[in-house]
């Protein structure tokens, strides 16, 4: 339509524009899920949107401040309770310190790797995303506070999830209930190793790849094994709530329930856990070594 007068020209037609943007979205989706060449796109948009997130969080802050103000009338009672609690905990802590000293001494004698101490940063969940596909949450601490992808997030009872994406002042937490998130675990009762994966449903985790004759019972507690070098060992993860041993399948269908309040808390702890560095194998054997287990 080169003969059309200038007055009627409005740039490309709406269908052309739609096709362009749909194509751009598809490219972005492929880039985001498969390739991940440009993490900067996400980071830039996150910085733009950050002030809005803070403003949207103001009502919650006001509500929290109000409830804190009204609960301050019970402070004396709470203080008494906490003092008692502290005394009880104190006693356990002293025993624990003695045990820790003894443990590290025994480990030295055995020549085993020392247990690594973890440091924790308190963070607050800013909000949960809208669509029910992703079990994720946004935390109010980001790379400016020293948060790195891969760190573990716990509450007072057990593991909640793992940091998967960090922005400048906020970070993204993938919950253990997320479909596609796995935690290597051990049962407390007999040390049986297993892998706990999310199902995409609230309050339900799968325990995979355990054969039907494996020694696992209802109410068994699963804790992190620490074998992967990502999760610190010994954190409670889940409790077995259902076991289905069908002889037709090679594996038992085992369902468990997260110990931690995965979708209940506001305050969480981000652990910075530095796994013990693997000893570099000698030059000669390095050629033949394959992937580390």
């Amino acid at each position: 339509m080169s003969s059309a007068p200038q007055f009627f020209k409005h740039g490309p037609g709406s269908l052309t524009r739609l096709l362009f943007f749909v194509l751009l979205s598809i490219l972005l989706m492929v880039e985001d899920t498969r390739l991940n060449y440009f993490p900067e796109i996400r980071h830039t948009v996150a910085v733009v949107i950050y002030p809005l997130q803070r403003i949207a969080h103001v009502p919650t802050n006001v509500y929290n401040a109000l409830t804190e103000f009204f609960s301050s009338f019970h402070l004396i009672k709470e203080n008494d309770f906490l003092k008692q609690r502290h005394l009880i905990d104190r006693k356990q802590l002293i025993q624990w310190q003695a045990l820790e000293a003894e443990n590290s001494h025994l480990r030295q004698l055995l020549g085993a790797v020392q247990r690594i101490e973890t440091q924790a940063i308190i963070a607050e969940i800013m909000y949960f995303p809208r669509d029910p596909f992703n079990h994720k949450a946004t935390l109010n601490k980001g790379s400016q506070h020293g948060i790195q992808p891969g760190q573990i997030v716990v509450d007072d009872k057990g593991v909640i999830g793992q940091i998967t994406q960090t922005y400048l002042w906020s970070s993204e937490l993938t919950l253990i209930t997320d479909n596609g998130h796995a935690v290597p675990t051990q049962t407390v009762r007999n040390g049986l190793r297993s892998i706990v994966t999310g199902t995409g449903k609230n309050g339900e985790l799968d325990v995979r790849y355990l054969s039907i004759n494996s020694n696992i019972k209802l109410k068994d507690l699963l804790v992190t094994s620490g074998i992967d070098g990502v999760y610190p060992p010994g954190l409670p993860v889940a409790e077995i709530i259902m076991i289905e041993r069908n002889p037709a399948n090679p594996f038992a269908k085992i369902t468990s329930q997260p110990i931690a309040g995965v979708d209940q808390n506001r305050q969480v702890l981000i652990l910075s856990f530095m796994p013990p560095a693997l000893e570099t194998p000698p030059e000669t054997s390095a050629v033949e070594t394959t992937k580390s287990p």
């Binding site: 943007f21 979205s25 972005l28 989706m29 733009v48 949107i49 809005l52 995303p129 669509d131």
Partner: peptide, 15 residues
């Protein structure tokens, strides 16, 4: 904006 704040796939809501 919604995609980033939702932690969903970049381009899902955009499309």
């Amino acid at each position: 904006f919604i995609d980033v704040s939702n932690a969903s796939i970049l381009g899902q809501h955009a499309m």
